[in-house]
Design a protein around this nucleic acid. Structure first.
Lengths: 361, 361
DNA sequence: CCCAGCAATTGGATCGTTCATCTGAACGTT
DNA sequence: AACGTTCAGATGAACGATCCAATTGCTGGG
């Protein structure tokens, strides 16, 4: 049986015709064996399948695409990594996307772009060339031009991220419930005994930032905790986090815990705490968002809200497949919950009133 | 002129035939206008191009692939991110690959795999379906089955990483000169006054590890520095780095500087230093490898060897294009130099003989 | 024995492009 | 004027699959 594995050196890729003649049937029967096995009698199916295996036949993607007008390829922009700060989320996403796509018979085509206009340019190219069936949109934001452009063009897509500030949205999206995450962080800190829990957020108008802020507001209100003078806003980054935390900790009635809109902010906040000779998780607790790789590497470890990226990826692909199938009754909206990963920066320990302690010096 | 941008709702993607009839020429002339403009008279070329622009025509990828038997797609495995530790290198690579590929008219198809066998399975699929023209291989290692498999199959590929432990290699590769990097690190530390410079490496047999080790050996020898008892080996990771550093620092004649095979190791080493109440960059200097995002975020900042990933990506794609063009005289080998990024973990400062200091206690 | 009815199978047309080949005109040479 | 050469452009034939309508084979009823 050592002939089976040996392929004739002269022969190129096997075509459907070669399989057909080997199995003693017609092209179409082979095609059916691959695409609609139920149409064949069990006997013929077995024969055809044997021929397929012997020749190692796989339908040519190009021929198939040309005929069916579908490529079985999904396009996805590679976000410009904010690796200076946190990073890591998009890698997990990409991995999971590949897995889910592949197990559904799709390939993932990635590309990078410098900004949204650039990205639209790539979409234009991909769609015109019929190089992808659908698109996964990431990093939606206020005033995002991309969804409208795609809709107008009649492109099939699903977004990771809500259509911030829009009504009557016509496309499906999946997102992580940031508010729920920060609310959980507040609850966690409150259970540890904190009563003055601050929030380090982004400038107003940032969808993600406002969402995460809302969770803090909601939960502090529900627990009847103070919020006045406990909100700071700035652009994302370690430096901003440090500056905001400095400001809050220097105030008359400083917080004893800081919930941060991102890990970068949180790392900055931890530095501000350390600058005062305090230890995050003792005198002041800090919680970040995204559970980036850095969070588990720095010392003390940073408690952070981990997005269920694998689930997001599954949902994205599966929803896109529904959209691609054409029969979408109406846009689907999915919100998934993040999970708090507790580390030393907010570990349980005796609480110390830093405000009074500072005064006591 | 508002007609120009309006596309008839009934019309599908424009085909070459539509462009041809609009321009009053034949299919082939349009094809030539796109693929071999020099064959057309300037006048006709202008007319055809006008028609192309008006209709927004782009050749169908599928039809083109079917006819030319080439997809203009490059496949690349998404490495299982070791994000727990360092990560980040592959993201930069991926971004650059996308950019370079796209500017050369190619698309990048990514996929993930659990292990090499799995990866070969995907290659098999992609090649059988004719879904990619070529492949970029990453993370080569000793006893790697993938290159041979690809060669036997006649697939076109280029590797990022040397074919460790092989002779008479038949494929092109690009790699970063790890030895040169660690040699530079040793030279850097020696300039700062260090005389006992240790190396934290990987178990023997790991290509990357042995390469980086070789640079340390070479440079210490050239500078006539001690090496005896200054080499530690273990699996990669923060814990190993810490353990190895502990061992070295506890020895009778401890090193005052640690060159590490990876940032994860280096971070572990920094912890060992801190555990002793010392500060990395003062009592003991530490240098890592890869300049992962973490290196710039932790405090003190970790000096690290940064791989020229963008250049690697360019080289990879360009070399693959040469391979794809078919006229490859012989395999190309390219070694690029890493660059030392100096941060506080090895900043210039007064040297203190930690050996004698310890004895003096 | 014949034929309707149904399922299994077949062959031609087609997707949109490029390749190979051909036509005809322009041009220069003898 | 006859000839060969070059060049712009046109035509038919692929590439390898699937769609569609037609055909074959089989079963069972009259």
């Amino acid at each position: 049986m050592d002939v089976e594995e040996r392929r004739e050196p002269t022969s190129k890729r096997p075509t459907i015709e070669m399989v057909a003649s080997r199995a003693g049937v017609s092209r179409q029967t082979v095609s059916n064996a691959v695409n609609a096995p139920h149409r064949l009698r069990p006997g013929t199916l077995a024969v055809v399948r044997a021929a397929i295996d012997e020749l190692g036949y796989r339908p040519s993607q190009a021929a198939r695409s040309l005929r069916t007008q579908s490529t079985r390829v999904i396009g996805c922009r590679l976000l410009p990594g904010n690796y200076g700060g946190t990073g890591g989320v998009l890698d997990r996403l990409l991995h999971s996307l590949c897995d889910t796509a592949r197990s559904n018979g799709y390939d993932l085509l990635t590309f990078s772009a410098n900004d949204d206009d650039d990205e639209i340019g790539v979409y234009d190219d991909l769609l015109r060339r019929n190089a992808v069936d659908g698109i996964l949109l990431t990093n939606t934001h206020h005033g995002d031009a991309r969804p409208d452009w795609l809709l107008e063009r009649g492109a099939r897509f699903v977004a990771f991220g809500r259509p911030w500030g829009r009504r009557g949205v016509k496309h499906s999206w999946i997102d992580v419930d940031g508010a729920r995450g920060t609310a959980e962080a507040v609850a966690h800190l409150a259970r540890l005994g904190h009563t003055r829990i601050a929030f380090l957020g982004l400038p107003e108008g940032n969808g993600v930032g406002d969402d995460r802020l809302a969770g803090w507001q909601r939960q502090t209100q529900q627990l009847r905790l103070a919020t006045k003078g406990l909100l700071g806003r700035a652009e994302d980054g370690i430096a901003s986090g440090r500056a905001l935390a400095d400001q809050l900790l220097d105030s008359a009635r400083p917080p004893s815990a800081l919930v941060c809109v991102s890990d970068a902010m949180a790392i900055g906040a931890m530095r501000a705490v350390e600058d005062r000779g305090w230890r995050p998780g003792h005198e002041v607790s800090v919680v970040g968002f995204d559970d980036s790789p850095v969070a588990s590497v720095i010392r003390p470890g940073l408690s952070s809200l981990r997005q269920p990226i694998e689930a997001v990826a599954n949902q994205l692909v599966e929803t896109l497949l529904v959209v691609l199938s054409g029969r979408t009754p109406r846009p689907e909206r999915t919100l998934l919950a993040p999970r708090l990963v507790v580390r030393e920066s907010s570990g349980s320990r005796e609480i110390r009133q830093i405000g009074t302690a500072a005064e006591a010096r």
